[in-house]
Write a protein that binds this DNA or RNA. Sequence first.
DNA 1: CACAAACAAATTGTATACAATCTAATCGTA
DNA 2: TACGATTAGATTGTATACAATTTGTTTGTG
Lengths: 145, 145
Amino acid sequence: MSNKYESLKLENQLCFPLYAAAKEIVRKYKPFLDEIDLTYTQYITLLVLWEKKEMNVKALGECIYLDSGTMTPLLKKLESKGYIERKRMPNDERNVLISITAQGEELRDKAVDIPNKIGSCVKLEPSEAMELYRLLYKVLGNIES
Amino acid sequence: MSNKYESLKLENQLCFPLYAAAKEIVRKYKPFLDEIDLTYTQYITLLVLWEKKEMNVKALGECIYLDSGTMTPLLKKLESKGYIERKRMPNDERNVLISITAQGEELRDKAVDIPNKIGSCVKLEPSEAMELYRLLYKVLGNIES
DNA sequence: CACAAACAAATTGTATACAATCTAATCGTA
DNA sequence: TACGATTAGATTGTATACAATTTGTTTGTG
């Protein structure tokens, strides 16, 4: 009973489980992130800043695949919470340098258990998790070009 | 140089490429969906209705992992475009039955090429696409419970 | 040096998402 | 059969996302 609309079946679309799984897993983070008063996007922004300490808005946005329209209000929010600082760079006033504050650093200790808590609810074999990881980055790489 | 924050590195988080890949691939749909004046969420809603013809709001939302807060305005939009009808069911007035219209059916022919166009920019081997599909549904299944 | 092109952020407008709450209808059971 | 519990959908409020445009700065080139 295949027909010309076969390709339009939800079950034949790779994009759909990708979209749904991403949404559901981000939702799984919510109770843990609520405890430290962060949203998921704020959390991944801090993941980068915890490692790199400072970065301009554009570079930060490229790391996490978000544009200035999303980053600007997000960063203002994190600034208002005291976790980051934003300042125009004197040598090139077009750039805004984002840097982690001492208060932002403190939050890192409270976040350190979150990945394990999430990992335990995804419940993939290590080899499967690695393969999923590899395939997702392959998709990401292919899409960019 | 591993430390107690190792788990917080962006590159060690399975969730991040999932989140980013989903976002990027949905964005890839945009030019094709623009041509038929649909958003991605409207598109997956119609994918279900093209197959099932009619369904109440709750069942439809469960199919695509969206709650009534998202579905209600979405369905009103599709109704205003003439692609679906919404009507309270007489036997149980709590339910709103969504059904595809003739105009909605017509749109199906215009959408039929979209999956191939997207597939060609994801560029996975068929075996890889199948494995990714399997792993994503495994994650989805594990998260639900 | 002038000035158009390029660039980084910010702004604007639209469309999700989803938690929490509310309303109306129906169910279950004492 | 009354009525509390449950259910479906709608509403409210907050936070993304992103295209398109705007603003201000810097760069490159004639």
